[in-house]
Amino acid sequence: MQPQFLLSLLDGVLGTIVLSVLTFICGGLAGFVVALARISPLRSVSFAAIAYIQVFQGIPLLVQMGLAYFGPILLGFESVPPLAAAALAMSVFASAYLGQIWYGCLISVAKPQWEAAECLGLTRWQRMTRVVLPQAMRIATPPTVGFLVIIVKNTSVSSLVVGYQELTYNAKVINNATFEPFLYFGLAGIFYFLICYPLSVQSRALERKFNVGTR
């Protein structure tokens, strides 16, 4: 194996991490808005959140990538950098799932706690920030860490259509030159595993810790 190929794979790892982090930040912010919209007392707002979640959970990420890549051109952009298109599609995708996960966490603490807080005379905003959110965040941590694994794995989709140069993309390019699929896709798999496995373990450990805490 030539060292430049290994370097290229490591470069891909960096691309994967950059896209994952961008997705988590943007998708997380958007997902939070989706979760809040979902619990909104306004019918139209919560319905919009439901529709958003259903639509973007019902379309493949790959198709969302295409829309994010070709859509902005219609709005007058000359072209879209692959990273921007990939991050946009991944953020929308992540926000639909995180919105759903966090919504579940919010309502699971909300019911009894809302009522208790209401009796104390706290405003809606105070109830949310002082009572519900701190507890919901605790419950939300294990599934959120678990979802990070899904984000990292799904960055591989951005090697198609938008052609963002991350780990899978580089492995594919190297394979096209060397025809050693077991070696290079195997190595790529190992790198993905090295990123994802610790997150999976962490997610399970948090879940156990949390379950013990509530017993």
């Binding site: 694994v149 794995k153 799904n154 960055t155 591989s156 989709v157 090697s159 198609l160 899978t168 492995a171 594919k172 394979n175 025809f179 050693e180 699929p181 077991f182 896709f185 195997g186 790529a188 798999g189 993905y192 595993f193 994802c196 496995y197 999976s200």
Partner: peptide, 23 residues
Amino acid sequence: VEVIRNTPLLIQAYFLIFGLASI
């Protein structure tokens, strides 16, 4: 279970399909 759940489907498919074809 751990290996598959912590790697992308696309890599698994490349590994399996291109790999088998290569041998």
